Amino acid sequence: MTAPRLKLSNVLIYAFLTLFALFCFLPMLLVFMISITTEDSIRHNGYSLFPNEFSLAAYRILFHDASIVLRSYGISLFITVAGTLCAVMITAMASYTLFNRAVRYRNHMALFFFFTMLFNGGIVPWYMICRELGLNDNIFAMLIPSLLFSAFNLFLTRNYMLSLPYALVESAKIDGANDAIIAFRVIFPLCKPVLATIALFYGLAYWNDWWNAIMLVSDQKLYPVQYFLFKLQSDIQMMTLIQGASNGGILPTESVKMSTAILTIGPIVLMYPYLQRYFVKGLVVGSIKG
């Protein structure tokens, strides 16, 4: 039995994908190499994949008190996981309500949600409502204000549901299923691709969020990792300006920037391949049951 011969088209496709993956990987490698480069080398030679002098000074500064970094990581992970799960659930149930033809005035409700995409109350009313609800200096201050689902994700999910045959709902009702069973056992399993997509959107928003912390949290023990690193980087820049004006001291500002990027990019990089499995699985389920 002879081995299958590679076609020229397949070779070209593999070569293109390899080059594309390499171009995507090189910026991440550059960021890592800069994070372990001395500040003097960066200032004299610029950014380079092959630095002349290596240094872990940036990581020593970040992990000067490792317990603070780990605590901030834990807070960010909890907020991201809990917030994403709750936000996806709320968005999915609201989308099913707008999808269900038995719901009266569902188009009017859709217009109400669409209105929020065009207008909002502003920062001052938002801050006053959060304060009145007791969302300050606690973990819920970084979870609940962003928990209300995005109208864009709502319509994205609703439109995906509209592409499904409504006969599935009617058949389930004939068999005696209620709306909860129809939603969780019939519709939502077929919507895994779009639910995985909005989960990625929500996860990125929660992980990168520092606005709620800077507005509603003053307790340093509740700082998420994004705000903690942002505050640390600002302090280092200020110290650099003071030392530079006094005695010419140099702190590793550039390498600290890159090291913070390395610390914060890890969970997001791991999220993509994990959700990719649900993209493929949801498409397969939809093709079988649809």
Rank of each mutant, 00 (worst) to 15 (best):
L270G: 08
I250F: 06
F114Y: 14
A82T: 11
S55K: 01
L143A: 07
I242S: 11
K257D: 12
W207A: 02
N136H: 15
V217W: 01
T116E: 06
P193C: 08
K231Q: 14
D175C: 01
I187R: 03
A58C: 03
S163V: 00
M271G: 08
P252F: 00
L147P: 03
L222Q: 07
F152S: 10
Q237W: 09
A57Q: 15
L263S: 04
T91D: 05
I250Y: 07
V81M: 07
V103F: 08
L251D: 06
F140R: 04
H44W: 09
P27V: 02
G244V: 00
M28D: 00
F20R: 07
L229R: 05
T2E: 15
S246K: 13
I288H: 04
A110L: 02
V225D: 02
F115C: 09
E132Q: 14
A177V: 04
E39H: 03
L12K: 09
L190G: 03
L200H: 00
R43H: 12
R106K: 14
I236S: 08
P27H: 07
L22G: 10
N10H: 14
S234H: 12
P165C: 04
G46M: 07
C130P: 00
L8P: 09
P51R: 04
Q237M: 15
F20G: 08
L62Q: 01
R131M: 12
L6G: 04
N178E: 11
L270P: 06
I139P: 01
L98P: 07
T264Y: 05
T260H: 02
A167D: 14
D40T: 14
S287A: 13
L143G: 09
M109Q: 10
V256N: 09
S218C: 06
N159Y: 06
T116F: 11
L77H: 00
S246D: 13
L263Y: 05
A66T: 15
I174N: 07
G290T: 00
F230Y: 13
M28K: 08
V285K: 11
I181V: 12
L29A: 14
F279T: 01
R101S: 11
V103Y: 06
Q276V: 08
Y272N: 02
F228H: 10
I181P: 05
W211E: 07
P252T: 00
H64P: 01
Y47M: 15
A57M: 10
T97N: 12
C86V: 14
F32H: 00
G249H: 04
A245L: 11
T240A: 15
I214W: 08
F140I: 00
F184S: 15
S72R: 02
P267W: 07
A167Y: 05
P165V: 01
A213Y: 04
W211R: 12
A199D: 05
I129Y: 04
M33G: 02
D40Y: 12
W211Q: 12
V124L: 15
A151W: 03
G244F: 09
C24K: 07
I68E: 10
L70V: 08
D235M: 12
Y73D: 05
E132S: 15
I198S: 02
L56G: 08
L229C: 07
V284I: 12
P252D: 03
S72C: 10
S35V: 00
P145M: 10
A196Q: 01
S146E: 10
L29Y: 12
Y278M: 06
